[in-house]
Protein backbone atom coordinates (compact mmCIF):
# COMPACT_ATOMS: atom_id res chain seq x y z
CA UNK A 1 0.00 0.00 0.00
CA UNK A 2 2.92 2.29 0.76
CA UNK A 3 3.95 2.06 -2.87
CA UNK A 4 0.53 3.26 -4.01
CA UNK A 5 0.07 6.05 -1.48
CA UNK A 6 2.73 8.23 -3.09
CA UNK A 7 1.67 7.83 -6.73
CA UNK A 8 -1.93 8.74 -5.80
CA UNK A 9 -0.82 12.01 -4.24
CA UNK A 10 1.56 12.57 -7.12
CA UNK A 11 -1.20 12.02 -9.70
CA UNK A 12 -3.57 14.47 -8.07
CA UNK A 13 -0.83 17.06 -8.50
CA UNK A 14 0.44 15.91 -11.89
CA UNK A 15 -2.94 15.79 -13.67
CA UNK A 16 -3.69 19.54 -13.58
CA UNK A 17 -0.01 20.49 -13.81
CA UNK A 18 0.56 18.66 -17.11
CA UNK A 19 -1.77 20.91 -19.09
CA UNK A 20 -0.76 24.15 -17.41
CA UNK A 21 2.98 23.59 -17.83
CA UNK A 22 2.53 22.31 -21.37
CA UNK A 23 0.52 25.25 -22.61
CA UNK A 24 2.56 27.88 -20.75
CA UNK A 25 5.76 26.37 -22.12
CA UNK A 26 4.44 26.12 -25.68
CA UNK A 27 3.27 29.77 -25.66
CA UNK A 28 6.54 31.08 -24.18
CA UNK A 29 8.67 29.05 -26.58
CA UNK A 30 6.58 30.18 -29.56
CA UNK A 31 6.82 33.86 -28.55
CA UNK A 32 10.57 33.47 -28.12
CA UNK A 33 10.96 31.74 -31.48
CA UNK A 34 8.94 34.37 -33.34
CA UNK A 35 10.88 37.16 -31.62
CA UNK A 36 14.16 35.42 -32.36
CA UNK A 37 13.28 35.02 -36.03
CA UNK A 38 11.87 38.48 -36.67
CA UNK A 39 12.67 41.09 -34.00
CA UNK A 40 16.34 40.68 -33.15
CA UNK A 41 19.23 42.05 -35.21
CA UNK A 42 21.71 39.79 -36.92
CA UNK A 43 25.20 39.26 -35.53
CA UNK A 44 28.08 41.31 -36.99
CA UNK A 45 30.04 38.15 -37.88
CA UNK A 46 27.60 35.22 -38.01
CA UNK A 47 24.85 37.17 -39.74
CA UNK A 48 21.37 35.61 -39.62
CA UNK A 49 22.58 32.19 -38.45
CA UNK A 50 22.96 33.60 -34.92
CA UNK A 51 19.19 32.95 -34.62
CA UNK A 52 19.88 29.20 -34.35
CA UNK A 53 21.12 29.98 -30.83
CA UNK A 54 17.54 30.50 -29.60
CA UNK A 55 16.80 26.79 -30.04
CA UNK A 56 20.30 25.35 -29.74
CA UNK A 57 20.92 26.67 -26.22
CA UNK A 58 17.61 25.42 -24.70
CA UNK A 59 18.15 22.02 -26.37
CA UNK A 60 21.68 21.77 -24.95
CA UNK A 61 20.46 22.82 -21.50
CA UNK A 62 17.60 20.29 -21.53
CA UNK A 63 19.78 17.49 -22.85
CA UNK A 64 22.10 18.04 -19.90
CA UNK A 65 19.41 18.87 -17.33
CA UNK A 66 17.59 15.68 -18.35
CA UNK A 67 20.54 13.55 -17.35
CA UNK A 68 20.93 15.63 -14.18
CA UNK A 69 17.34 14.67 -13.36
CA UNK A 70 18.02 11.00 -14.13
CA UNK A 71 21.04 11.08 -11.81
CA UNK A 72 19.09 12.76 -8.99
CA UNK A 73 16.25 10.26 -9.36
CA UNK A 74 18.78 7.43 -9.40
CA UNK A 75 20.17 8.56 -6.03
CA UNK A 76 16.65 8.72 -4.61
CA UNK A 77 16.00 5.24 -5.97
CA UNK A 78 19.23 3.70 -4.67
CA UNK A 79 19.21 5.34 -1.25
CA UNK A 80 15.58 5.84 -0.27
CA UNK A 81 13.97 3.31 -2.64
CA UNK A 82 11.43 5.99 -3.47
CA UNK A 83 8.74 4.35 -5.60
CA UNK A 84 8.39 7.31 -7.95
CA UNK A 85 12.11 7.78 -8.52
CA UNK A 86 12.54 4.93 -11.00
CA UNK A 87 9.44 6.09 -12.87
CA UNK A 88 10.75 9.67 -13.06
CA UNK A 89 14.16 8.55 -14.30
CA UNK A 90 12.67 6.33 -17.00
CA UNK A 91 10.24 9.08 -18.06
CA UNK A 92 13.11 11.54 -18.55
CA UNK A 93 15.28 9.35 -20.79
CA UNK A 94 13.47 9.73 -24.13
CA UNK A 95 12.82 13.50 -23.89
CA UNK A 96 16.43 14.03 -22.82
CA UNK A 97 17.68 12.03 -25.79
CA UNK A 98 15.44 13.99 -28.19
CA UNK A 99 16.72 17.35 -26.95
CA UNK A 100 20.33 16.17 -27.01
CA UNK A 101 19.72 15.17 -30.64
CA UNK A 102 18.14 18.56 -31.41
CA UNK A 103 21.17 20.23 -29.84
CA UNK A 104 23.56 18.19 -32.00
CA UNK A 105 21.55 18.70 -35.19
CA UNK A 106 21.01 22.46 -34.76
CA UNK A 107 24.66 22.89 -33.78
CA UNK A 108 25.76 21.03 -36.88
CA UNK A 109 23.50 23.17 -39.07
CA UNK A 110 25.03 26.28 -37.44
CA UNK A 111 28.55 24.97 -37.79
CA UNK A 112 28.41 24.57 -41.57
CA UNK A 113 27.97 28.28 -42.43
CA UNK A 114 29.94 29.52 -39.40
CA UNK A 115 32.94 27.24 -39.02
CA UNK A 116 32.83 25.77 -42.49
CA UNK A 117 32.20 22.21 -41.29
CA UNK A 118 29.21 20.10 -40.24
CA UNK A 119 31.16 18.18 -37.64
CA UNK A 120 34.56 18.13 -35.97
CA UNK A 121 35.74 15.89 -33.14
CA UNK A 122 36.47 18.63 -30.65
CA UNK A 123 35.94 18.29 -26.90
CA UNK A 124 32.51 19.92 -26.71
CA UNK A 125 30.98 18.22 -29.73
CA UNK A 126 32.34 14.79 -28.81
CA UNK A 127 31.22 14.93 -25.17
CA UNK A 128 27.72 16.03 -26.26
CA UNK A 129 27.55 13.12 -28.71
CA UNK A 130 28.63 10.82 -25.85
CA UNK A 131 25.68 12.16 -23.82
CA UNK A 132 23.31 11.24 -26.65
CA UNK A 133 24.74 7.69 -26.78
CA UNK A 134 24.45 7.43 -22.99
CA UNK A 135 20.74 8.22 -23.33
CA UNK A 136 20.34 5.49 -25.95
CA UNK A 137 22.13 3.00 -23.71
CA UNK A 138 20.05 4.07 -20.70
CA UNK A 139 16.79 3.64 -22.63
CA UNK A 140 17.82 0.14 -23.73
CA UNK A 141 18.95 -0.77 -20.22
CA UNK A 142 15.81 0.59 -18.51
CA UNK A 143 13.57 -1.25 -21.01
CA UNK A 144 15.43 -4.51 -20.52
CA UNK A 145 15.42 -4.28 -16.73
CA UNK A 146 11.74 -3.27 -16.65
CA UNK A 147 10.84 -6.35 -18.67
CA UNK A 148 12.63 -8.68 -16.32
CA UNK A 149 11.69 -6.70 -13.23
CA UNK A 150 13.89 -6.06 -10.22
CA UNK A 151 16.89 -5.16 -12.36
CA UNK A 152 15.97 -1.49 -12.22
CA UNK A 153 18.92 -0.85 -9.93
CA UNK A 154 21.34 -1.48 -12.79
CA UNK A 155 19.74 1.40 -14.71
CA UNK A 156 19.98 3.62 -11.62
CA UNK A 157 23.67 2.90 -11.20
CA UNK A 158 24.21 3.62 -14.89
CA UNK A 159 22.28 6.89 -14.53
CA UNK A 160 24.55 7.90 -11.68
CA UNK A 161 27.80 6.93 -13.40
CA UNK A 162 26.80 8.65 -16.64
CA UNK A 163 26.38 11.96 -14.79
CA UNK A 164 30.17 12.30 -14.78
CA UNK A 165 29.83 13.35 -18.43
CA UNK A 166 27.89 16.51 -17.47
CA UNK A 167 30.82 18.47 -15.96
CA UNK A 168 32.98 17.22 -18.83
CA UNK A 169 30.55 18.75 -21.36
CA UNK A 170 30.34 21.98 -19.38
CA UNK A 171 34.05 22.48 -18.80
CA UNK A 172 35.27 21.05 -22.12
CA UNK A 173 35.57 24.54 -23.61
CA UNK A 174 37.65 25.65 -20.61
CA UNK A 175 39.87 22.60 -20.14
CA UNK A 176 40.71 21.98 -23.76
CA UNK A 177 41.15 24.08 -26.84
CA UNK A 178 37.99 23.46 -28.79
CA UNK A 179 36.48 24.64 -32.03
CA UNK A 180 33.32 25.42 -30.08
CA UNK A 181 33.44 28.90 -28.59
CA UNK A 182 33.69 29.47 -24.87
CA UNK A 183 30.80 30.17 -22.58
CA UNK A 184 28.87 33.34 -23.39
CA UNK A 185 26.59 33.48 -20.39
CA UNK A 186 27.95 33.20 -16.86
CA UNK A 187 26.80 34.20 -13.40
CA UNK A 188 28.43 37.59 -13.74
CA UNK A 189 27.08 38.57 -17.11
CA UNK A 190 27.01 37.76 -20.78
CA UNK A 191 29.10 38.56 -23.81
CA UNK A 192 25.99 38.59 -25.99
CA UNK A 193 24.58 42.04 -26.72
CA UNK A 194 21.22 42.54 -24.90
CA UNK A 195 19.40 43.28 -28.16
CA UNK A 196 20.36 39.79 -29.42
CA UNK A 197 20.08 38.02 -26.07
CA UNK A 198 16.56 38.83 -24.88
CA UNK A 199 14.51 36.08 -26.65
CA UNK A 200 16.86 33.41 -25.31
CA UNK A 201 15.38 33.32 -21.76
CA UNK A 202 11.90 33.08 -23.32
CA UNK A 203 12.72 30.00 -25.40
CA UNK A 204 14.81 28.48 -22.59
CA UNK A 205 12.06 28.81 -19.97
CA UNK A 206 9.40 27.86 -22.53
CA UNK A 207 11.12 24.66 -23.64
CA UNK A 208 11.94 23.81 -20.01
CA UNK A 209 8.26 24.03 -18.97
CA UNK A 210 7.28 21.97 -22.00
CA UNK A 211 9.98 19.43 -21.12
CA UNK A 212 8.58 19.16 -17.59
CA UNK A 213 5.07 18.63 -18.97
CA UNK A 214 6.37 15.89 -21.29
CA UNK A 215 8.06 14.15 -18.34
CA UNK A 216 4.79 14.33 -16.37
CA UNK A 217 2.92 12.80 -19.33
CA UNK A 218 5.41 9.95 -19.53
CA UNK A 219 5.34 9.38 -15.77
CA UNK A 220 1.54 9.17 -15.89
CA UNK A 221 1.83 6.72 -18.77
CA UNK A 222 4.30 4.53 -16.87
CA UNK A 223 2.14 4.63 -13.71
CA UNK A 224 -0.98 3.67 -15.65
CA UNK A 225 0.89 0.85 -17.37
CA UNK A 226 2.19 -0.42 -14.01
CA UNK A 227 -1.32 -0.34 -12.58
CA UNK A 228 -2.61 -2.19 -15.61
CA UNK A 229 0.05 -4.87 -15.36
CA UNK A 230 -0.49 -5.35 -11.63
CA UNK A 231 -4.23 -5.81 -12.16
CA UNK A 232 -3.76 -8.19 -15.06
CA UNK A 233 -1.32 -10.24 -13.01
CA UNK A 234 -3.80 -10.41 -10.14
CA UNK A 235 -6.65 -11.44 -12.46
CA UNK A 236 -4.41 -13.97 -14.18
CA UNK A 237 -3.55 -15.44 -10.78
CA UNK A 238 -7.21 -15.65 -9.76
CA UNK A 239 -8.30 -17.43 -12.94
Amino acid sequence: MHAFANPTRFLSLARPLTGWLGWAGAVLALVGIIAGLTLTPRDYLQGETVRIMYIHVPAAWLGMAGWGGIAAASVAELVWRHPLAAIAARATAVPGAVFAAICLASGSIWGRPTWGTWWEWDGRLTSMLVLFFLYIAYIALADASADRGGGARVAAIFGLVGAINLPIIHFSVLWWRTLHQGQSIGFTGSTIAPSILWPLPLTTIGFTLLFTAIILMRMRMLLANAKLEARQRRMGGAA
Partner: peptide
Protein backbone atom coordinates in the same frame (compact mmCIF):
# COMPACT_ATOMS: atom_id res chain seq x y z
CA UNK B 1 44.56 21.94 -46.51
CA UNK B 2 41.44 23.05 -44.67
CA UNK B 3 40.47 26.32 -43.03
CA UNK B 4 37.84 26.47 -40.31
CA UNK B 5 36.66 29.77 -38.89
CA UNK B 6 36.46 29.82 -35.11
CA UNK B 7 33.78 32.00 -33.63
CA UNK B 8 34.24 33.58 -30.22
CA UNK B 9 31.69 33.98 -27.45
CA UNK B 10 30.90 37.61 -28.31
CA UNK B 11 27.64 38.22 -30.14
CA UNK B 12 26.57 41.73 -31.15
CA UNK B 13 24.58 43.50 -33.83
CA UNK B 14 26.52 45.16 -36.67
CA UNK B 15 25.65 48.67 -35.50
CA UNK B 16 27.40 48.13 -32.16
CA UNK B 17 30.32 46.25 -33.64
CA UNK B 18 30.59 49.09 -36.17
CA UNK B 19 33.92 50.82 -36.21
CA UNK B 20 35.42 48.38 -33.69
CA UNK B 21 35.55 45.68 -36.30
Amino acid sequence: DTILAKHDEKYMPPQIAGSMH
